[in-house]
Design a binder for these strands. Structure first.
Length: 308
DNA sequence: CACCCGTGGTT
DNA sequence: TAACCAAGGGT
């Protein structure tokens, strides 16, 4: 009886009856309460789903909505975006944040045009190979756009599963193998039902089982929730990394790029210098933007969004 | 695996 | 008000 054969508690087997007990209530709740988001409408297509997933990486739905509409109207197919200069994608990204996502979405559109005849690939592995698409986004596009059966583990789903199945308030900082195993165990066998489940469990986390003020009174699985049944114990592990922003390179980069986004013409060094008074940090931030391909340096100390 | 990468609203 | 949070990905 040594500990080497004892699985850690985080890898406890899933209650065999749990999946079926959760599917009905959550799917029925989703039928009634799902938001009518534009990327969920049939006309969005796989490209619409993919654009929305890029924009929703760390950016709230309400801020994505207007930019999404502009992008799909301007670039209705991957080839339309691929034909543009990458700097135009960065400019149209506006203030969504993390502008490297715009660059990667543009690069993904180029790859789709070159390697996939302009159609968003259906295969999870091919999606994963595209720039800016990781484990989550590949599964999300395959599931939401093509109705495939994939475990879609985003921050909402991870929180819902941590509470309902594992009985803790928050999931670990980084996604664990135990979480992936749990997500697979909870995934309905039927493909259509599985893709619906992915969207429904995510929506439940976004609307009801939220990070701070969860509303168990509106939760369809409150009676089955391990965390609630345990008396909703507070998170004990290490605090999740706080992200300070003021004074960081990210803030400087944001200010520099804002100047370049607003200008149709190349910008003089002096017009960038005014956004931050500390010259060393300012130079480091600008160099970083150039290294990332977000900014193109020109002769005479001028800069612009990248044309290529 | 820890850290970096924007932005703005909420508590 | 500082901290936290928001459909992550890349290194």
């Amino acid at each position: 009886m040594t500990s080497i054969d004892t699985p850690p508690t985080s890898e406890a087997p899933v209650d065999p009856a749990l999946p079926a007990a959760l599917h009905g209530p959550v799917l029925a709740w989703f039928d009634r309460h799902a938001r009518d988001l534009p990327w969920r409408r049939p006309e969005a297509g796989a490209w619409g789903v993919m654009v929305s997933e890029f924009m929703l990486q760390q950016t709230p739905v309400v801020r994505v909505l207007p930019v999404y509409e502009q992008w799909l109207a301007r670039w209705p197919r991957p080839a339309d975006l691929a034909a543009e200069a990458p700097g135009e994608a960065v400019r149209a990204w506006g203030r969504l944040g993390y502008p490297r996502r715009a660059l990667r979405l543009h690069a993904a559109a180029v790859a789709i045009t070159e390697r996939h005849h302009g159609d968003v690939p259906r295969d999870h592995g091919q999606l994963l190979a595209l720039p800016g698409i990781g484990e989550y986004t590949a599964a999300a596009v395959a599931s939401f756009a093509y109705g495939q059966r994939h475990a879609v583990l985003d921050t909402n789903v991870r929180r819902v599963f941590a509470r309902a199945a594992t009985g803790v308030q928050y999931p670990p900082n980084a996604t664990t193998a135990a979480e992936r195993r749990l997500a697979r165990a909870l995934l309905p066998e039927d493909e259509t039902k599985a893709s619906r489940w992915a969207a429904a469990s995510m929506e439940l986390g976004a609307l009801v089982c939220t990070a701070k003020s969860e509303d168990c009174g509106r939760c369809p699985i409150a009676e089955r929730c391990a965390w609630r049944l345990a008396g909703k114990p507070a998170h004990d592990g290490p605090p999740r990394r706080g992200q300070t922003y003021a004074g960081t390179d990210r803030q400087v980069r944001g200010r520099l790029l804002a100047v370049l986004r607003e200008s149709a013409d190349p910008v003089a060094q002096a017009d960038l210098d005014v956004v931050w008074d500390e010259p060393v940090q300012r130079a480091r931030a600008l160099d970083g933007l150039v290294a990332d391909g977000l900014v193109e340096p020109l002769d005479g100390g001028r800069y612009r969004l990248p044309l290529s």
